[in-house]
């Protein structure tokens, strides 16, 4: 997690002349403004370019509503699957020593470096009509590609490492002392996990869930390959945005895009909040003397 330290005041020997500081700050802020802020603002500006009523109409259009539903379903399935995987992977990697650990970590990171389009293609080759399992699937009347299961699978793939990656370093840093102490005190394995491990990783887990969810709801490339773009059947919001945009329905496209932009802003806000809470949990929030005074007052 990135943290923003409240940097200690720097001495005269460790900072640059004022004009350098101002130039650098100005340059950095201009870059961020032009590349991040303006595109973000323009999404809302375009969405509302023709007024609120058209904006709202675009949002409650049946196909848009369906896309929202599908996006939610995909995220609701993919995120919990990755939570279970992430916790299992982090538990075995962080709390135990075994051969091939670093290879396993590399493999878990693999989906980050595979292009989403390539990921989508692999699923088409597995489950598509002419894929490995294509004949068997069509014989049993199971549809994965160009259907919801394919969208879920593609979403799971692209968000695969998010939670494990967040938890592994966290659990490694925490070590296994507390778990061992719980076992010595007579706790069972599950009790140890629920009462000791889970509370200790909850902020890291939540952080991973937030990032995982944002990616799951916003994924475009991989989902685009496996969805088949069937309106009202396999369109998620990002795919719906593309269709509307290509039809020159800019207000509709940007209205749906603004939903995703709000999602992104909520994600950033939650993420910052969690970082803040996690940092507070680590630090000594209430000094001991204050506690003692409180106890004495009771």
């Amino acid at each position: 997690m990135a943290s923003l330290s409240t940097a200690a005041p720097r001495g005269i020997a460790t900072t640059e002349p004022a004009w350098v500081r101002y130039t650098f700050t100005g340059l950095a802020l201009t870059f961020l403004g032009l590349f991040l802020l303006v595109p973000l603002v323009s999404v809302f500006a375009e969405a509302l370019a023709k007024g609120w009523s058209l904006y709202l109409d675009a949002l409650i259009e049946p196909e848009a509503l369906f896309a929202m539903k599908l996006t939610l379903i995909a995220a609701l399935i993919a995120v919990p699957l990755n939570v279970v995987f992430g916790v299992a992977a982090a538990w075995s990697i962080a709390k135990f020593d075994f051969h091939g650990k670093s290879l396993l970590i590399t493999l878990i990171d693999l989906p980050f470096s595979v292009s989403p389009v390539v990921a989508g293609l692999t699923y088409v080759l597995m489950f598509g009509a002419q894929g490995w399992l294509g004949e068997w699937l069509s014989a049993h009347d199971i549809k994965i590609i160009f259907a919801v299961p394919g969208i879920v699978l593609a979403t799971v793939f692209v968000t695969f490492p998010f939670i494990a990656r967040e938890l592994i370093p966290l659990m490694q840093a925490q070590g296994a002392d507390e778990e061992q102490a719980a076992l010595v005190l007579g706790a069972t394995g599950w009790q140890t996990f629920w009462h000791i491990t889970l509370p200790n990783i909850k902020w890291g887990l939540l952080y991973g869930v937030i990032l995982c969810n944002a990616r799951a709801m916003g994924e475009f490339g991989a989902v685009s390959v496996v969805s088949g773009h069937i309106r009202g059947e396999t369109n998620t919001i990002p795919l719906h945005v593309e269709i509307l945009y290509n039809e020159y329905n800019f207000v509709g496209a940007f209205a749906c895009a603004s939903l995703l932009a709000v999602l992104a802003l909520v994600t950033l806000a939650l993420k910052t909040l969690v970082e803040w809470r996690a940092a507070r949990q680590l630090g000594n929030d209430v000094p001991l003397e204050a506690r003692a005074r409180l106890a004495a007052a009771k």
């Binding site: 002392d177 102490a181 719980a182 076992l183 005190l185 706790a187 069972t188 009462h195 200790n200 949990q281």
Partner: peptide
């Protein structure tokens, strides 16, 4: 270990950081 009925005091204490002192002792 959970059936040996031993008390173990760890070098760095291994107190459960998310629990109060009371909950630690009661665990």
């Amino acid at each position: 270990v959970s059936e040996r009925q031993v008390g173990f005091v760890f070098q760095h204490y291994a107190l459960f950081r998310h629990m109060t002192v009371f909950d630690n002792v009661a665990f």
